[in-house]
């Protein structure tokens, strides 16, 4: 008898799954309870059972239509969607990648047991082929979950980075026509770009002609940061707004001079209050006691 591993028509895999769906499900669940570790602390058994039975059901359908090759076949799309959804929610619930992938891998044992029973003792070659195919299939699906898991994490990290960028660069309106931009944290190229863009946009939106850039919260200034600041000031000037830089701490003043950075004709003030006072003066307005 010649059985090629590629020929799924000879495989008993679909039949075995079809016939023993309930038993496989039961053993799988108990397997998951042993292997899954924290799984059951975080997910109710009924929910787990529901996920497992949906997975098995979709797997059965997919194998029936497209055999055991999940690559690029539309029949597996639904199954893959389910796994994606699962991995995504697991990742958000705080599971580890191992725990997520174990969900798929722990199906192996119950499945292999059924396969062994179906083939009996005398047909080892066919049994090995089937087991090999099942392993390949489950491995691919398991790896798929890990990939989705990591992608989800990546997306979360990216979103947080974006949030951080936006959080740390608020442009506030101090007075009619006076904006303030308190910069907190290290300025790098990407951040400067965001800072610059949000400042310029706000200048247009509010029609402000004076902007105060306060760098009290910037821990260090190097030539690159200084250059970025100058670029922002120049861009604002091109639009018709004037910039005042405030909050240059003593150490930073020293560094700037030591580095030989030419701040040119940019107005600088010691504190935000001083800068604000200057801005009011430029607008020919003043605050007085009443």
């Amino acid at each position: 008898m010649t059985t090629s591993p590629q020929n799924s028509a000879d495989s008993r895999l679909p039949l075995v799954i079809e016939k023993n769906l309930d038993r496989i499900l039961d053993t799988w669940i108990s397997e998951l309870q042993v292997d899954g570790g924290r799984l059951l602390n975080l997910i109710r058994e009924s929910e787990l059972r529901e996920q497992a039975s949906r997975f098995l059901d979709l797997l059965r359908k997919a194998i029936k239509v497209a055999g055991v090759n999940p690559e690029k076949t539309a029949a597996y799309d639904e199954l893959r969607d389910l796994l994606d959804e699962l991995s995504r929610s697991r990742s958000e619930q705080g599971f580890t990648p191992t725990e997520t992938a174990t969900f798929v891998f722990s199906l192996k044992r119950p499945l292999f047991r059924e396969l062994k029973e179906a083939h009996g003792d005398n047909d080892t070659t066919a049994l090995l082929d089937d087991i090999w195919q099942a392993t390949m299939l489950l491995d691919r699906l398991g790896l798929n979950t890990t990939e989705v898991f990591i992608n989800t994490r990546e997306a979360i990290i990216q979103r947080q980075q974006q949030d951080l960028l936006e959080l740390s660069t608020p442009v506030v309106s101090l007075w009619n026509g006076i904006l303030a931009l308190p910069v907190i944290g290290t300025l790098d190229s990407e951040r400067t770009q965001t800072v610059m863009e949000s400042l310029l946009q706000k200048i247009v939106a509010t029609g402000s002609d004076i902007a105060i850039i306060d760098i009290t919260g910037v821990p260090a200034v190097d030539t690159l940061v200084a250059q970025h600041l100058l670029k922002t000031v120049t861009a604002a000037r091109l639009m018709g707004a004037e910039c005042i830089i405030s909050g240059i701490r003593p150490q930073i003043a020293q560094t700037i001079v030591h580095l030989g950075v030419e701040l040119g004709n940019v107005t600088t003030k010691g504190t935000l209050a001083d800068a604000f006072a200057l801005a009011l003066k430029k607008k020919r307005q003043k605050v007085q006691d009443i």
Binding site: M196, E197, L200, Q201, I203, V204, A235, L238, M239, G240
Partner: peptide
């Protein structure tokens, strides 16, 4: 007058 932010950034 009226230079757009994107234009200002590009020029700089």
């Amino acid at each position: 007058v009226g230079m757009q932010p994107a234009v200002a950034i590009t020029l700089v």
